[in-house]
Design a protein around this nucleic acid. Structure first.
Lengths: 196, 196
DNA sequence: GTGAATTCCAACCCAAACGTTGGAGTTGGA
DNA sequence: TCCAACTCCAACGTTTGGGTTGGAATTCAC
């Protein structure tokens, strides 16, 4: 059988993403990552360095995707903000591993984050879109653009950050993904609505 | 020196809360918990069972506090909702360990949570307060009460869940705890404002 | 084709951490 | 006062898991 280093690396990283997302940096073992990829453990060390380096690599590569995800060029009103919030919500649903990596990164509370520059730039473009819409009087400007953008993401992300709280708060009338999504859109719209 | 089992237990649990909150279940060692408490490791096992039992105990005891925290009897309008949001935000700031435990619990994604009954009841009272205010036409009723309450908590908690994202999104105009708090209150008020 | 460099793995080393044990000190009741 | 029960700890056994090594299979340059 021929060597295929690119494929081996890919498999290892894919496996690392899954394991780190599922169990966090502390709960993950190099052994398991390698086994899941069907590759010898030693490959991890030669390709990616030790465990913490591997974790940093995974964070940098994957969370860049999160920051870049869900394109946002033009916001022409509160409805567009609601649609954006819904798209972020859907993105979380489709990529639970990335959401979990993001939360785990938050818990590490590093003074600086892998690839902070690039990711900051991505977020900057989102904030800029909100700021433009504010200047054009298309959406409310009583919150700083960065706050507004951040809080929209909060509405979408909180469901995934504390699913147990979501379950307990909705004990009497269980929330489905659809009702959650609808409520989220309505809330986003209200946050973005310009004063009458 | 006289024995003092109650005090020993208290010290151990306090220490466990701090360690688990800081490093998560995976990153915490029984050794460190015991050392921090100035007690022998073996005490942990006789008093609390193994590591996972200890973690479950800590979660149950401490997260009950979170659910019960920030009293909320009567909401007489959007301003009261904003004040509640701010109080929750302040609570997170004062008890970062509990916030972190909550997030860690969320990441474990257990099918059931320690002490789920009791905690559900606490959350139920919060939702009920929102529902009462809605029926009295004091706040907006275009969102289900549970959704509204949950999203208010989202606004307050997201800052602590993903501090790195907060930092990156506010790169150009750094947010202080005060500006964050002010923005949060404004947002909460808008979510709760009845339609004109 | 041959040898140097590369990819891969089984087996190993060792430190860390979980959990236990045997025994010494302390208490309280009969 | 004596002993049964309890509190505590130092030291230990064992497993897990991070990281390495020696060597076999493969590739590629010449």
């Amino acid at each position: 059988m021929a060597w295929n280093t690119a494929e081996t690396k890919r498999r290892l990283k894919e496996s690392a993403v899954a394991e780190f997302a599922a169990h966090g940096p502390g709960g993950t073992t190099m052994e398991r990552i390698a086994r899941r990829a069907g590759v010898n453990k030693e490959r991890l060390y030669t390709y990616f360095g030790d465990k913490s380096q591997l974790f940093a690599t995974v964070l940098a590569d994957e969370l860049n995707k999160v920051a870049a995800a869900v394109p946002l060029e033009h916001l022409d009103g509160p409805e567009a903000v609601a649609a954006y919030a819904a798209a972020v919500y859907d993105y979380h649903a489709e990529h639970p591993e990335l959401t979990r990596l993001l939360l785990w990164e938050g818990l590490l509370d590093l003074p600086e984050v892998p690839d902070e520059e690039t990711r900051t730039d991505y977020y900057r473009t989102k904030v800029a879109a909100f700021a433009r819409a504010q200047r054009a009087n298309l959406i409310s400007d009583d919150l700083p653009a960065a706050d507004l953008a951040f809080l929209i993401l909060a509405l979408a992300g909180w469901w995934y950050a504390v699913p147990q709280m979501a379950r307990m708060m909705h004990a009497d009338e269980p929330a489905t993904p659809d009702t959650a999504r609808a409520g989220l859109m309505r809330a986003a719209m209200k946050l973005a609505a310009p004063k009458a």
